[in-house]
Amino acid sequence: MFKITSYTKASDTNMGVKKRSMRFNISPEKSPFFYLLPLILFMLIMVAYPIGRILYISLTSNIMTRPDLGVQFIGLENYANLFTSMAFWETVGRTGAWTALSVGGKTAIALGIALLLARDIAFKRFYLILLMIPWVTPMVVAAVTWRWIFDGQFGMLNYILMQVNILQEPYVFLGHKMSAFIATAITDMWLGIPFLAMMFLAGLQSIPVELHESASMDGASKLQKFIHVTLPMMKPIILVATTMSGIWTFNSFGVIWPMTHGGPVDATQTLIVQAYKLSFGSFDLGMGAAIAVVIFIILTICTVLYKRLLMRQEEL
């Protein structure tokens, strides 16, 4: 509105000329800056500042509950401590293995579900709704529910396994290192499958029918069609979807914490769990922040890879 008024005034007075030039100053090339300014400020406060602060904290020795030890700037010492500690590298390896197990399982199962749902079957809509249930379940609710399913004394899984005589006495799934590792990964799979299945289903439906038809005419078997037609066509979408799922799984705190708190001993302690334990369990902010930064770096690399994949997909 004010633009129009200044324009009309500008027609005869000297003042108007000045105003006109000012109006020109802020538009059109530079005006986007002003429109973006609120959001830039918002992002600076809500995103850039916390990241900068974490970077700074990771360079200090700062234990909140130990004012007697003081807060000191110690440079890269926290990182040096981390990288020379065996336990840290074990955690990195464990996080990688857990992510691989969970994402691998998710991808295989989701692909199977997508293949089934891509066919013309009865009650398809019903199955789709069923598939959505894990997606709409809050993560912590799901984790707590699964914790009780795996419980050693009152758990549903033990009950079923004992009814069919696979187990003679209850097995405490979350009380043993290996089984707890797998049980948490299964829970994470359950939560992540709907997203991947939907992506794969969309991918399957985008494959032109002609390709399958011509393959059939050439005498390809079902398996050959899957390997030589479906998979190559799906490759971009599989790569993109699993990379995204991998990033989420890597940071999956809401599953592990309610189920095991990273235990028994540290069998399910991933990087994010360790960062949380250090920052909010022992309140060792420096070390906690250092791990957070390491996670940030690892995930940034993953995101760059993901972006490259996306680019290549667009070239296709």
Binding site: T65, R66, D68, G263, P264, V265, D266, K277, G281, S282, D284
Partner: peptide
């Protein structure tokens, strides 16, 4: 000096 990290150390030992 601080209880909670101390408790973590002990429970880890017991669990191991």
């Amino acid at each position: 000096a601080v209880w909670e990290p101390f408790q973590d150390v002990i429970t880890t030992a017991v669990q191991r």
